[in-house]
Design a protein around this nucleic acid. Structure first.
Length: 506
RNA sequence: GGAUCGUUAGCUCAGUCGGUAGAGCAGCUGACUCUUAAUCAGCGGGUCGUAGGUUCGAGUCCUACACGAUCCA
């Protein structure tokens, strides 16, 4: 019996139900008195009481003139018990005919079976929605799962089935929502204004990434989808909003990996009259708050690759303030053994990088080499929360220069469990400096760097009206959720991750 | 873009040296009035990812392509 035959058979069942005057899609609401989980947790109070629950039938075990079935709702699972002598021949027959996956409303009284399982003894039931496809539901005993749905491609393509069958997927989404809610509350408490800025932009700026292009018909203009939130939020700072944030989807036209989805959720916030150190304080408080919201404690067990390459667990404590701070060049000196002196000229930097075994043919400036060495040598060592500071000027075109060393910037990135989890600057508010940085980016673009920032004349005009000194922060929400839920792939924290279309066009 | 691995029943997976396509679960029929991975008896279910090639013979070997996973760029 293949899948289509099963579907045919269930459609026929549906037809005969309709002929008998029962439309299994006609009912609009069902009044529940409890959730499945409440019945188990409040058993003492509910024993022998009548309750009404609703949910999906995930197992049924007919046993002669009785049937045991499992009903699952969002809260959990409960067993129901149906007896022919109670329901009568006709209703019992209808219950026997139900299929795994059907959605039911059930009324009955609560008792405990001889085997000790809390169960509802059904006095009445109603089919609320018929399932006409086979549900690949697995079985479980003593926490061990048998069968089920594991094929990741099917899981991502048919996420609705994945979630039904693998309930932990839903738990991740719940935690994702909790992370976002906690961030939003945290910022609201501090007087931040939440805004929404344009997704369709003339020039997609604010980050080093290639944009998606789209077309507006009425204006007959090719717009780009945003790659960051930065330049519009700063315009609002110019406009007199002193604390502003946005949690929004951005789009980067790049490859897919366990850490990259072409559309992802970014938090950016800007605070006038604040600097980089204020952003550090904010990050320390905010992450501890998020961790407490998700885990009830600021301590988190993280999984990461050890130096030998296999996985290792470490407990990190977000409340252990202040977090470590490490200038990027000191990190490279410590973990790659390359002296900061090596980065005085492009030639010596390239030489040092090659000696460390990393090719430099695609690197055209010292900053790019520094970041590469950082990613290769320092980043894998950053387990406990750490601020890496003093990023090179060439790769930080929106961050203020250090007054004492214009080759470095007032910028940090946060790392936890070897993952980058935030990027902050004391923002450039000198319009002349900002123009010079954009022009440097244009040179890099002409040299073949397709990810170089575009020059945004209107943004420069805004800066010329004067932007107060401002601290800004960006956080990849998906990666923060990955950290908080212990997921190794970004696709596990996105309900519908991007996949290649199932069938090629044509 | 490159490397490696994978794609067999609805699901999870076996398939030896190239020689008739297998199991468990799910499904169907029957038995069973406290089962719980229910049990027992029986039955059905396959374009072996796609297209070529080698061969008397291909799930198995070769080539290309598709989709996915992991790592690298």
């Amino acid at each position: 019996m293949d899948e289509n035959e099963v579907r045919e058979q269930r459609l026929q069942k549906l037809q005969s139900l309709r002929e008998a005057g029962v439309d299994p899609y006609a009912i609009e609401r069902y009044e529940r008195t409890h959730t499945c989980a409440q019945i188990t947790s409040c058993f003492e109070a509910l024993e022998n009481q009548t309750v009404r629950i609703a949910g999906r039938m995930t197992a049924h075990r007919p046993k002669g003139k009785v049937v045991f079935a499992d009903i699952r709702d969002q809260s959990g699972r409960i067993q129901v018990y149906v007896k022919r002598d109670d329901l009568g021949e006709e209703a019992f027959r209808r219950f026997e005919d139900l299929d795994i996956g059907d959605i039911l409303g059930v009324e009955g009284w609560v008792f405990r079976t001889r085997a000790g399982e809390i169960t509802i003894h059904v006095t009445e039931f109603v089919l609320l929605a018929k399932c006409i496809r086979m549900l690949p539901i697995g079985k479980e005993k003593d926490g061990v799962h048998y069968s089920g749905l594991h094929d990741v491609e099917t899981r991502y393509r048919q996420r609705y089935v994945d979630m039904l069958v693998n309930t932990e997927v839903r738990d991740v989404l719940i935690k994702r929502s909790l992370v976002i809610q906690t961030v939003r509350e945290f910022l609201m408490e501090r007087g931040y204004l939440e805004v929404e800025t344009p997704v369709l932009q003339v020039e997609a700026g604010g980050a080093a990434a290639r944009p998606f292009k789209t077309h507006h018909n009425a204006l007959d203009y090719d717009f780009k989808l945003r790659i960051s939130l930065e330049l519009y939020l700063k315009r609002l700072i110019v406009g007199g909003v002193e604390r502003v944030f946005e949690i929004g989807r951005v789009f980067r036209n790049e490859g897919l990996s366990t850490r990259h989805n072409p559309e992802f959720t970014l938090l950016e916030l800007y605070e006038a009259y604040s600097n980089l150190e204020d952003m550090m304080d904010l990050v320390e408080e905010m992450y501890a708050r998020v961790c407490i919201a998700v885990h009830g404690s600021p301590c988190l067990t993280v999984r990461h690759r050890s130096e030998t390459g296999d996985f290792q667990e470490t407990v990190v404590d977000f409340s252990a303030r202040p977090w470590k701070r490490l200038p990027i060049l000191e990190g490279i000196e410590r973990y790659a053994g390359i002296s900061p002196d090596a980065f005085k000229t492009l030639e010596s930097a390239k030489r040092a990088c090659e000696q460390a075994g990393i090719p430099t043919e695609h690197e055209h400036n010292i900053g790019g080499i520094i970041e590469k060495l950082h990613e290769r040598f320092t980043q894998p060592r950053l387990i406990h929360p750490t601020f890496i500071t003093d990023f090179p000027v060439e790769t930080s075109p929106l961050a203020k220069k250090r007054p004492d060393n214009p080759a470095l910037t007032r910028r940090f990135e946060v790392y936890v469990a070897t993952q980058e989890l935030g990027n902050a600057f004391s923002e450039i508010n000198d319009p002349m400096d900002q123009r010079a940085r954009f022009e440097d980016q244009l040179l890099q673009r002409q040299a073949g760097d397709e990810e170089a920032h575009p020059l945004d004349e209107d943004f420069l005009r805004a800066l010329e009206y004067a932007m107060p000194p401002t601290g800004g922060l960006g956080v990849g929400i998906d990666r923060l959720v990955m950290l908080m839920t212990g997921q190794d792939s970004i696709r596990e924290v996105i309900p519908f991750p991007l996949l290649r279309p199932e069938k090629p066009p044509g």
